[in-house]
Design a protein around this nucleic acid. Structure first.
Length: 275
DNA sequence: ATGATTTCCTGTAGGC
DNA sequence: TGCCTACAGGAAATCA
């Protein structure tokens, strides 16, 4: 499940591989995978990729014409940069071919929770999924972070997963960050002191940075553009480690369901804030 | 406005 | 061993 570190891993590769390349053909293999702007696809010929941006888990490719490409990897999404003649794997929904370039960019997504979208600049300005995103988890200040949690009664984990509060965190890194900060996922978010929210943000940013350095986590599907897997799954301390001993105190890691998400934590190290 | 719940989708882990 | 069910979850929609 691509979260901020996996998406950033993809962004870094895209920047290295397709920046400056003119699009030769934007091929849609499955129309309903295009969330917006299907009709713009043909207008992309000749557009040069000028900027590869990321906000939260969204990637935006800004081009030399009045067109912006948005990609989201959802749960099982993968971007691959492979030879045009390479076997077309199942669930490949988008192929982007470039001028004078034997490799093409493909987006695969068996579960189709991901999508792509094509916007003019004016349309992009009205794209609320992007504009209403909170600050990126790596960028947000501790002051603003604390303000976002203040007065909220929802479980800490639920707010951290809310992309309008802070963008980029998903199930893996919320569980890992809460464990490192020794905070309970069910604690009401508003009960954190400033010191606690500062500590939490510091650990969240730290685990995100470590994962980016490791090329992200491959739990099921994630691949890098060249097909390599991420390495950070080996450094997970609680995510999907239920029943195993806590690396800090040896207590058995617990698993509960919170908002439909598997939630892993140490019942000993991560104390619940009482009302 | 907030918080909780449901929906989408398919590969596969795990149980019998 | 092999089949079948249940589970995995990001984000938008829906409901209280």
């Amino acid at each position: 499940m691509p979260e901020l570190p996996e998406v950033e891993t993809v962004r870094l590769s895209l920047e290295r591989l397709i920046l400056g390349l003119p699009i030769k053909r934007y091929e849609v293999m499955r129309d309903d995978f295009v969330q917006h702007g299907l009709a713009h696809a043909r207008a992309l010929n000749g557009a040069v990729i000028e900027k590869v941006a990321r906000r939260g888990k969204f990637i935006a490719l800004f081009t030399s014409i009045d067109m912006i490409l948005v990609h989201h990897l959802g749960m099982s999404g993968r971007m691959l940069f492979v030879d045009r003649s390479a076997t077309l794997e199942p669930h490949t929904h988008i192929r982007i071919r470039f001028e004078n370039q034997p490799l093409e960019l493909r987006q695969r997504d068996p579960r189709r929770f991901g999508f792509c979208a094509i916007f003019t600049a004016a349309e992009f300005d009205r794209y609320t999924a992007w504009s209403q995103l909170g600050p990126d988890a790596l960028e947000i200040s501790s002051k603003r972070f604390h303000l976002a949690l203040e007065g909220r009664s929802a479980p800490l984990k639920s707010l951290l997963l809310n992309q309008r509060i802070v963008a980029g965190l998903g199930n893996i890194y919320v569980d890992e960050g809460l464990f490192r900060a020794r905070l309970h996922p069910l604690s009401p978010a508003g009960m954190l002191s400033y010191d606690e929210s500062k500590r939490l943000l510091r650990h969240l940013k730290q685990v995100l940075r470590e994962s980016i350095a490791a090329g992200g986590s491959t739990t099921n599907d994630f691949q890098r553009l060249d097909g390599r897997l991420g390495e950070f799954q080996h450094a997970h301390r609680v995510y999907q480690k239920h029943g195993q001993p806590c690396p800090r105190c040896r207590t058995s890691i617990a698993k509960i369901v919170l908002g439909g998400r598997g939630t892993h934590y140490c019942p000993e190290c991560q104390e619940l804030h009482e009302e």
